[in-house]
Write a protein that binds this DNA or RNA. Structure first.
Ligand code: MN
Ligand code: MN
Ligand code: ZN
Ligand code: ZN
Lengths: 171, 171
DNA sequence: TTATTGTTGCAAAAGTTTTGCATTAAGAAA
DNA sequence: TTTCTTAATGCAAAACTTTTGCAACAATAA
């Protein structure tokens, strides 16, 4: 882990916070560092669990309040990820370049995908609508290559189309 | 309202439902027709309210269950719209062409924007990842042209940066 | 018309996020 | 360093949205 980048990152957060009148509490720093080093997209519950391994007394409300602050500072992005599991949202430290999230509705895997077409869209919206973009989400749902090979899930509902031939499988 | 299209649409829903073993109840038809003729994106609560003007006895759980069915049938899309108001999601009848949703976080206005770049992205993901796309969301948050002219909202939080000069306005 | 079973409505439960408030602690000023 | 201001935290309760269980109902096909 390159030290210089570490330092620069923290410097940015500290400076950003100060500029906006936010204090740099240990909890805030902890939550941000968790997201910075996360290898997956985490929801509030997961962030809380991991934060408690360092600060057992931290409360969930502190997670929520700080996620709101970190979003405002633009250092954390909130994702819907199609609510893959439950009703929560997911969070990630803001990346250098925007990327789309491709979620497999069968196995739950989430892939990231970068494309110049994303910049194209944001440029168009800025130029044609005069809109000032704060953030952008591209979220895609479907079936990954791996799952497509395996049996397509029964996706629908009750008994009707489980073994009735005219009932097509959905997805 | 062109009758031919009306008929074709309903025919599609009836056929789709039958193919998948779903029944075409009056409630289901009502909910779909509400979304079909809606001029705005509606959340479950709003759909319920409007449905009750026709069927006062309809329950919210019927709204939720049917939105799930209509989504599975691919005739309704669920949107996050950055949770502009509260924690709900929004729904719209599936359109002919995919479009992105541009939401102003200040006035709450939601604009729709179509671009070939969206198709570009989905094509890339299909070809490069071997991913089968069921649906795609592009959601953008920021400030609309109109709001940019007016005073930028204080967006942040407490008293600190309300009148302290070094505190920049966020968005 | 009858049989089957998907669907509805009601009520309760579950899951997630927010609010109120006293206490603590970050950061600026003295 | 010490003092002072007030943003931030933790705890508990509340608010909100969505889901589940189940008996009664109604859409389809036989
Ligand atoms: Mn990501
Ligand atoms: Mn969402
Ligand atoms: Zn998969
Ligand atoms: Zn606006």
């Amino acid at each position: 882990m390159p030290l210089i980048q570490e330092i620069r990152r923290h410097h940015n957060l500290a400076e950003l916070a100060r500029e906006h009148g936010f204090r740099l509490t240990t909890q805030r720093r902890l939550i941000f560092s968790i997201l910075e080093s996360a290898s997956t997209h985490m929801n509030a519950k997961e962030i809380l669990a991991q934060a408690r391994r360092v600060d057992p007394g931290i409360d969930q409300v502190t997670i929520y309040r700080n996620l709101a602050v970190l979003k405002k500072l633009g250092v954390v992005d909130e994702l819907d990820l199609l609510h893959l599991r439950g009703d929560q949202h997911y969070y990630e430290a803001r990346q250098d370049r925007p990327h789309s999230h491709v979620a497999c509705l069968q196995c739950g895997k989430v892939m990231e995908f970068s494309s110049p077409a994303m910049d194209k869209i944001s440029t168009e919206i800025r130029d044609e609508l005069g809109f000032s973009i704060s953030f952008m989400r591209v979220e895609i749902g479907g079936a990954c290559a791996e799952c497509r090979r395996k049996t397509p899930l029964t996706s629908p509902q009750t008994k009707a189309n489980q073994n009735v031939s005219r009932s097509k499988k959905l997805n």
